[in-house]
Design a protein around this nucleic acid. Structure first.
Length: 433
DNA sequence: GATGGCCTAATTAGGACTTCCGGTGT
DNA sequence: CACACCGGAAGTCCTAATTAGGCCAT
């Protein structure tokens, strides 16, 4: 049985559009999280019984492609094929997600998690910080205390974990797939299969995001909630309720653009050059962004369930940072500070790369780890803590820096190319080196 | 038989949407 | 005209808290 301190890699995006890697000098961002439940291994194909060194790697194997473009096209075609599939035996990632993953949300949520982000500069951040930091000084919306009749007053049920509220673990442990809409959206925004294709940050620092494909997002939400009739109209109503509760603001004058009044302090923005860095140029998303923008449904045939291909990940449970924009008033998009271009966006003032609760390990990280001899012997059921992984990556960073120092330039061969494996990183002699 | 502890099912309140609607703005 | 957006109202679903009742041991 796995312990909470054990580390599992979820292979999040091997099937992800490789075009996202095109032309970016940064190594992909990486999120690491403790995932306690063995069925997650099943979900990810990493059965605890499996010999990790073999099956694990086989699962994660990514064949390099001669022609990056062809690979991209094939990937897209495959993805689109998935979208069109509705047969019962086509177990979508999302279905898989719902069936296998959600039951463990409670553990996931309450488990302190360390995130590690790797960019070209190496490990940007790796913080093991179990505490959550409520940053909202007050609860945004006044709660109506309704009358009770004929019964003893009881303790109020935990409400939606609006930024400064913690949710009891049990709430997520009862087999229900309780995932609030705002959490769901945050997930999507951290899922590279969805962001920026269907939803994207327009101003991460301000928590402003756009529903690039509102219909697709609504369908995803509906699928998650088992509401096949869900549409943007309905989902939008739920979003509007968030105004009252101070969870969201509408960004005036911009359609389909909303703003989180708070974001997890430890929110991580996986940009690796895509999605979130387009905030200055909405058109620079290579990942179908233009095709998808405003309504990429036009690019999809009707009835396509593009969410079929999407697997996303359990809800973040984090501390939150509120944005300067006052929740009380609808806000225009705040002037944005210059976003760093290192592939990881940080909130003004402090690093975003902190402990976090996303059970995601990107494919890129896994590939990276595959290249490390030490990591190849890492057993989820063994000693591998997230923090150790962070240390490991820190060492990796150092080694890489040393290598780069010798080469004196981040050469092109270090940049990921479509259809190419991520850069071969210098194997680590030891995580503790 | 009375009492207390434990367990379980039923009840209830309330949160978080969902659905529907009429309306406005772009 | 389509779509985004708004917010009221009523409904559904789910969960936690509470209560009631049964069982058992003392």
């Amino acid at each position: 049985m796995l312990q909470q301190s054990e580390l599992i890699f979820e292979y999040a995006s091997d099937h992800f559009n490789l075009s996202q890697l095109v032309g970016h000098s940064d190594y992909p961002a990486v999120i690491v999280e403790q995932v306690p439940h063995p069925h997650l291994l099943t979900y990810t194909g990493l059965s605890p019984e499996q010999p990790q060194n073999e099956d694990h790697q086989q699962l994660l194997k990514v064949e390099p492609c001669e022609s990056g473009e062809e690979e991209i096209m094939e990937t897209l075609v495959a993805a689109d094929s998935l979208l069109n599939m509705d047969c019962a035996d086509t177990l979508s990632l999302e279905q898989h997600y719902a069936q296998a993953f959600l039951p463990s949300l409670g553990d996931v949520i309450t488990t302190p998690v360390t995130q590690v982000t790797v960019s070209a500069e190496g490990v940007v951040g790796a913080v093991d910080q179990p505490q959550w930091h409520p940053l909202h000084s007050e609860k945004p919306a006044a709660r109506l205390q309704s009358k009770k009749r004929g019964r003893k007053p009881r303790h109020r049920r935990a409400e939606s974990p609006t930024p400064n509220i913690t949710v009891k673990k049990d709430k997520y442990n009862k087999g229900g797939n309780t995932l609030y809409l705002w959490q769901f959206l945050m997930e999507l925004l951290q899922d590279r299969q969805v962001c920026p294709r269907y939803i994207k940050w327009t101003d991460p620092q301000a928590g402003i995001f756009k529903l690039v494909n509102s219909k697709a997002v609504a369908r995803l939400w509906g699928k998650h909630k088992n509401k096949p009739d869900m549409n943007y109209e309905t989902m939008g109503r739920a979003l509007r309720y968030y105004y009252q509760r101070g969870i969201l603001n509408k960004v005036e004058g911009q359609r389909l653009v909303y703003q989180f009044t708070s974001l997890p302090q430890d929110m991580i923005y996986i940009t690796d050059g895509e999605g979130t860095k387009e905030e200055d140029e909405d058109h620079d998303n290579s990942c179908n962004d233009e095709g998808a923008s405003e309504d990429s449904d036009s690019t999809m045939s009707s009835g396509q369930s593009d969410e079929e291909e999407l697997g996303f990940h359990p809800p973040p449970k984090k501390s939150f940072v509120s944005f300067p924009a006052a929740p009380a008033a609808r806000t225009k998009a705040a002037p944005r500070p210059a976003a760093p271009r290192d592939g990881v966006l940080r909130p003004s003032g402090s690093s975003l790369i902190q402990e976090q609760h996303l059970p995601i390990v990107s494919a890129e990280m896994l590939r990276t780890l595959q290249n490390l001899q030490k990591v190849q012997s890492l057993q989820p059921a063994g000693h591998a803590s997230v923090f150790q992984t962070a240390q490991l990556l820190g060492s990796l960073c150092e080694r890489q820096a040393a290598t780069e120092g010798a080469a004196d330039s981040p050469s092109a061969e270090e940049k990921p190319h479509p259809g190419q494996r991520p850069p071969q990183l210098v194997p680590l002699a030891s995580p503790n080196q």
